[in-house]
Structure formats: C-alpha cells, structure tokens
Design a protein around this nucleic acid. Structure first.
Lengths: 234, 234
DNA sequence: GTTACGTGTCTCTATTATCGGACACAAAGA
DNA sequence: TCTTTGTGTCCGATAATAGAGACACGTAAC
C-alpha cells in the first residue's frame, strides 16, 4: 500500500515492494506467500529474491522461509544519523526526568516516523515506541506537533474540524496533548522542534498515567528541544 | 563494496547500491556525488532516485542533497522483530547489572551485525554500539563467539592461527574475551547464543575498564542468553 | 503405488530499462 | 558578458528484464 507504482524503474519498485511486504508481515513468508501478495510471476519473484539476498536485505531460514535481512539494519543506521546521535543522550535524560518514554519523530512526504525513543530507567511498565513506527498525521500529540509546522496546504484532505482547531492551539500554546487518541489508555505530550534543513520534527513523551501538569511536561520537553538544537549547531 | 554485481536483476541491485553508497557516506550526497560513486549514467541515477523517493527510502533536503529516508527505519523495524522484542528488557537488566553496554549480535552470510544494544543507566562514559553496526568475523570477543558456532569450512580464508586457537578456547570455556582488538582501549566479553532457526547469535558486553572477573561476567551473560532462549520459546 | 503441492531452475519472445547524447535552466566564476 | 558547472528532463538504439510455460525434485496425502 505504501509503494504505488512509483515512476521510474519497475524492477526496483517491485524489489522494494518485496521488502515492504515482508515488513508488514509479522512472520517469515514462504515464496508462495510473496508471489500471492505481490501478484507477480514466480520467475520474477525468485530473481528479485536472489538480488535482495546478495545484498543481505533478506535472509532465508532453515525451512526456506524469507525474512528481512541484517543489511537493512546497517542501512537504517544511516537514517538521520547526526540528529539521532545528538538526541539520544538528551532523550534519555528527559525520559528519566519525566519517568515516561520519550521520543523524537520526524516528518517526510506525508508520514510521521519515530526516529529514536528512550524508555525511563525505573519504569514499572515500559511503553514501547520503537524507531521506525509510523504515526498518523494530525492525530495524537506528536501528529499535531508536526502538523502545526506544516502549511495548511500540505494538511491531509479530510482532517476533522476538531483536529484543525487543536492544531491551531499548538501554535498558540506551544505544545500538543492527547489522550486515548491513537492508543486507548495512553497519554501523550509533544512539542514542535524546528531545525533548519531537517523538515518538521517533534519531541514527545507517552505514558499510561499523566503525572505532572501538561505545562510542566511541555516545559521539560521544550528544554530538550533547545538542547537538541544546540547540539546540532556544532 | 558490500554489493557485488549480484546475480539476478541489475536494476534492483543498482538501486540498492544507491542506498549503500548513502549509508557509507557520512554526509548527504549531491546527485553528482552519487553518479561519480556509482559510475552510472545520469539518466539512470535520476530514474533510480525517483523510484527510491517514491518509496520514502531516500529524501532530499532544501539544497537538493540526497540522504537516506525514513522508510528505511520502518523496514528495519521488521528485522528480527521477535528476537529483538524478546531481548530488549533482558539486555537492559544485564547492562545495568554489569555496568557496561550490553548487546546482541547475529550472523548472516559472512557478516556479524549488532541487532540491539543497551547502555547501562548510570554510566560515566557510554560506549555506543548502535544496532546495524557490522563486526569482523573471528576478531574480537563477539566475532569469536559467533565463529565458535560455525563449522571451520565457513571460516574466513586467511584467519590467523592465533584467532583459530582463541576460537577453539571459546568452545571449551564457553565464553570469549578480547582487549584492544577491534577498538583500542576497549574490553569485551561475549557468549554464544544458539537459537533454533536463527543462525549463530551472541550476547556480549563492551566497556573501557573490566570490573569483575571475566568468568563472572560470562556467567551473567550466559544467564541472559538462557532468558532470551526461554523468552523465544513461547 | 499415485496424486497433489511447493520449490527452484531453465528457456523463450514481448516488454522495459539502459545509456549515449541533446536540450533547457540556474548559479557561480572569469 | 561570456563561460563553466551542476541540475533535471527528454529522446531513440541497444541491452536487459518481464512474463508465461516447461521441467526436475522433494514431500506429504491418499
């Protein structure tokens, strides 16, 4: 669903669709699974698999089933490397200070992706927010913190009036808050992080029960945002 | 260097080489950089870039320079997902217990890749060991812990006699130790982690100064390995 | 035994990508 | 101003892939 029939190279696009199909599947896939999912001929899929395996982007287990390979982890290491290196220690401190999972999200061509996250040290239940997770735009605290940095022309087509006004509130108050929005039972607070040459970013926390006043949490998050901006200036 | 002219699809292989080139570069690349690095014609590179951009595997900043895109992080999220989800909390506890960065490495077609790592909470200096990092086979404690699980027929061609005997010691003692081997000044201890259907794995720690006796560290690592094995059995 | 099924490789034309060059355009430099 | 350099697109002849089927092999069902 992510990859439409992208302009340019059909072969490359199909090879990437193999990886996307494997990522969306929670278990390793058999060749037949892939052939059925992609709707391609067997000979094509096998050719793509050989090429992908040669680059270690897929691997095959003892039963011949196909899974994403370690080479993808090596490639992903290079995604926003400077930003992630600079932010990790800051997010760790913020997560401990707020006793909540703290994360940094980025916006790229219509989607919001978690770039890094840090769980607090002494947490009874750790709310996971793994890097690579995709958020809906305009929904939830991080979604609105990002949206508030985008011109309304780039907003999603059918964004409810409620979300539009809530996003406007982010601009005035400087932070976004959400509860039961993306995942039931979870609270979230996020602040925008504008950084030159990096598209809209946001720093946020997610937790089961809100501890401090939202304004206090937002103040601490803004502090982290300032530190990240400073660390990136070098 | 990683991707030779892989059998199968030339187009797909070249598209992946674009990603590999961007990952090896520490800064965003201009189109000319890529064209020179890959040795391809301009029209080919532009076509590949359009396709990759459509799948959010690359992105372009305000100056037109090209960097790896967030879609790669989403794909990498699926790499060894079950194993990583099961290991994260165990590695965190182990890292705190040993006051050292603790990590899990996996082997796939000739290369050892860090799958996850956990830094200790109260660390003066945190030794980073980011997921996706590639280790040399047979060198260093993790390298030998992996090698000890491979048949000698799959060992690297010109492995020094010293490394061969040290690897043999891992089989008898149950753990590997290294100092000043991969990175000067760093100590490392690692234990093998055999897991059915998952290729050779190893759990290890890396630190600046060794605190406990290697045997004690190895015992704690073996404990973590057992816990991971148990967590994967469900 | 047979039947059915998934795997993996191979061969073959129609379709698609490649690659050279050409073109237009903008930003620096002489 | 006139060059030079990088960017981005477009066009044809050549080389590569797509896509269908055929084939051999192991393996589980009957």
């Amino acid at each position: 669903m992510a990859g439409t029939d992208a302009a340019g190279s059909q072969t490359l696009s199909r090879g990437i669709r193999v990886l996307e199909a494997l990522a969306e599947s929670d278990a390793p896939m058999t060749p037949s699974d892939l052939i059925a999912t992609l709707g391609l001929h067997r000979s094509i899929v096998y050719r793509l698999l050989h090429t992908l395996e040669g680059h270690r982007l897929i691997t095959r287990d003892d039963r011949g089933r196909i899974a994403l390979g370690h080479g993808l982890a090596a490639l992903a290491l290079g995604v926003e490397r400077d930003l992630r290196d600079a932010s990790v220690p800051i997010l760790r401190r913020t997560a401990d200070a707020l006793a909540s999972t703290c994360f940094l999200v980025g916006y790229d061509s219509g989607e919001i992706t978690t770039l890094i996250s840090a769980a607090p040290h002494r947490s009874v239940v750790a709310v996971a927010q793994n890097p690579g997770t995709v958020h809906p735009v305009g929904v939830g605290a991080p979604g609105r913190a990002i949206l508030s940095q985008l011109p309304p022309t780039e907003w999603p087509a059918h964004l409810p009036e409620t979300q539009r006004r809530a996003t406007g509130d982010v601009v005035t108050s400087g932070f976004a808050i959400s509860h039961d929005e993306v995942v039931p039972g979870l609270h979230a607070v996020a602040v925008p992080l504008p950084l030159v040459g990096h598209g809209p970013l946001a720093v946020g926390v997610v937790c089961l029960a809100i501890l401090d006043a939202p304004e206090q949490i937002a103040a601490r998050l803004r502090e982290a945002a300032v530190q990240i901006t400073a660390a990136m200036a070098d």
